[in-house]
């Protein structure tokens, strides 16, 4: 069987995680290509709905990457994002999807190395969980059609 390559949507705050990701690039630190970064002005801008839609549209996991506690460029957007992540996890539980598919992480702009470690660990964890519902269906559909 082909190994499952998870697709991760990473909402990255412009002021920290997005910069850390750029830094990982300039340090040429590799991480899995399944990590897809979407830039946001602050993790406080990450709408729970956008996370739901990401999972619905085919992401296997969503990472919300913001500034360290106390370092938010907008005072407390990261703390709000943290609470919202907990709220989203309740939804996930209700839907019956592993709540580990959504995580909030915090880092500073200089933490290129940590960025790589965090996203790689997250992706590895999602790999263990397997594909998200939409992707499961697509796969099962594909298998069916091949059988037919």
């Amino acid at each position: 069987m082909e190994e499952f390559d998870p697709v991760i949507v990473a909402y990255c705050c412009h002021y920290c995680a997005y910069t850390a990701a750029d830094m990982a690039g300039s340090m040429r630190l590799g991480y899995p290509p399944g990590i897809k970064i979407i830039r946001v002005p602050c993790t406080g801008k990450v709408d729970p709905l956008h996370v739901m839609r990401a999972l619905m549209d085919g992401a296997d996991g969503v990472l919300i990457a913001g500034c360290l506690k106390g370092d938010c460029h907008f005072k407390n957007g990261n703390i709000k994002a943290l609470k919202r992540t907990a709220y989203l996890k309740q939804w996930m539980d209700e839907i019956g999807i592993e709540s580990e598919r959504v995580e909030m992480v915090m880092m500073s702009a200089g933490m290129g190395k940590q960025f790589v470690r965090i996203v790689t660990d997250f992706l590895d964890n999602i790999r263990l969980l397997g594909p998200c519902p939409k992707n499961t269906n697509q796969q099962s559909n594909r298998i069916l059609s091949e059988l037919v």
């Binding site: 946001v40 002005p41 406080g44 801008k45 709408d47 709905l49 460029h73 907008f74 957007g77 709000k80």
Partner: peptide
């Protein structure tokens, strides 16, 4: 300041942060 927190919390989806709208 353009952080967008209000936009992501608005229960009526009445607020949009320009450049980062829904």
């Amino acid at each position: 300041h353009g952080c967008g927190t209000c936009a992501s919390e608005c229960p009526a989806q009445a607020i949009q942060l320009t450049r980062f709208e829904d």
